[in-house]
Amino acid sequence: MHILDFTDRKALITGAASGIGAAGARLLANGGAATLILTDRDADALDAFDPGCSVVRIAGDVADPGHWDEVAPHLDGLDHAIVNAGIAAGGAIGETGFAEWRRVLGTNLDGAFLTLSTALPLMREGGSVVLTASVSGIKAEPGTAAYGCSKAGLIHLARVAAKEAAPRRIRVNAIAPGGVDTPIWDQTPFFRDLVAEHGGARTAALDAMAAMATPLGRYASADEIAAQVGFLLSDMAATITGAVLVSDGGYSL
C-alpha cells in the first residue's frame, strides 16, 4: 500500500499543470485517487499533463467567478483540495503600480477565496484542504509587498476556513515553502537577471540563491513539497487543522 493512501478519493487541484500542482496531482494519483479535477489557465499545458488517473481538465483563471461556475458541477462529493494557483511578482512599494498589485492579489488571494467558497460547501465531511502559501507571507523582505501580502492573506484565509469547516470535520491547512524549483521563478525579473549572470544556467542561478539565503544550502523540489502537502491532506494528519507548515530550509530563522 502507498504510504499516503488516497484510494478512491476525489480531489481538486488549482495551478495543476506545472510545479507543485502537477507534483501534487501525481502524488494523489500514485496514492490511488479515483478522480482529479485539474484547473490551470495554461490550457495547452493542462491538456498535455497526465498524472496517471481519471482526470477532469478545466482551463481558466481562478480569479474569474465564471470559471468556478464551470468547475462547481464536478466537485460534488469532493474529498481533498490543493489550492495552489499563484503568480510571482517583485518590486518596491513605490515602484509597484496599482494594476500590478491587483494582478497579484487577484490570482493569489481572490483566486484562493473563490476556490474555497466553491469547494468547501461541496466537500464531504472529513475532507481536507491545503493552501500553497509562502514563507514570503511570514518573513518580510524588500521588493515582495504584493506577493508577500497575498500569501500572508492566504495564510489567514486558511485559518478562518479551518474554523468554519471544523464542525464538518473538514481540515484546512497551509504550507509555506521557501525556495522551490518551479517555473514561478521565471516570472520574476530579478531571477531572469541572475540566470543571465550565470550564463543562462538556471540551475546554477537557483543554487547560488539557495547558498546565500538558506541555512540548509538548497531549495526544495516540487515533489518534496507535494509530499508534505500529501501528508497534510492524508489521514495521518487527522488532528492537524489551521496549521502552517513552514518548509523553507531554515530561511526564516
Rank of each mutant, 00 (worst) to 15 (best):
G97A: 03
T39M: 04
A165V: 06
F190M: 14
T203E: 14
L109D: 06
D40G: 11
K10G: 03
L253I: 15
A17W: 10
I37G: 01
D186M: 14
T182I: 11
W185S: 14
E164F: 12
A25S: 08
G153V: 04
M209T: 05
L78H: 02
S234K: 12
T107K: 08
S134Q: 10
V244P: 10
L114C: 09
A81Y: 12
P51I: 14
L38Y: 04
S18I: 04
L116H: 11
V129I: 12
Y251W: 11
D50W: 10
A89F: 08
L116G: 13
T182Y: 00
L4Y: 13
H198E: 03
I175G: 06
A213D: 02
S117P: 08
N173I: 07
P121C: 08
H74R: 11
S117N: 15
L216C: 03
T144S: 12
L245P: 05
A85G: 11
S150L: 06
G200C: 05
L4W: 11
G153S: 04
Q187C: 15
L233Q: 06
A33S: 10
A72P: 00
L131V: 08
T214V: 14
F113M: 04
A16Q: 02
G143T: 08
P65K: 12
T35S: 01
R171S: 12
H74K: 09
D47H: 07
D248V: 04
L154T: 03
G52H: 13
L194Q: 07
A133W: 06
A158L: 10
A210I: 00
A33W: 10
M209V: 02
A162H: 14
L75Q: 06
Y219L: 00
L109T: 03
V172H: 09
A237N: 14
P215D: 13
A133D: 13
A201S: 12
A33T: 06
L206W: 05
S134Y: 02
I93C: 10
D61I: 06
I138P: 02
N30G: 14
L253P: 03
T7V: 01
A145R: 10
M209G: 05
M1A: 13
D193C: 09
F190C: 02
S221H: 03
F6E: 10
A237S: 14
A204Y: 04
A88H: 06
R124P: 13
K151A: 05
G137E: 01
A213N: 03
Q228A: 15
I82T: 01
T7Q: 06
G66E: 15
I93R: 07
G24E: 08
R192E: 15
A226T: 02
H156V: 02
H198M: 03
E164K: 15
A243T: 14
D186S: 15
V130R: 13
S234W: 12
R159N: 13
L216M: 10
L105A: 07
V180P: 00
G143L: 12
R124T: 15
C53Q: 13
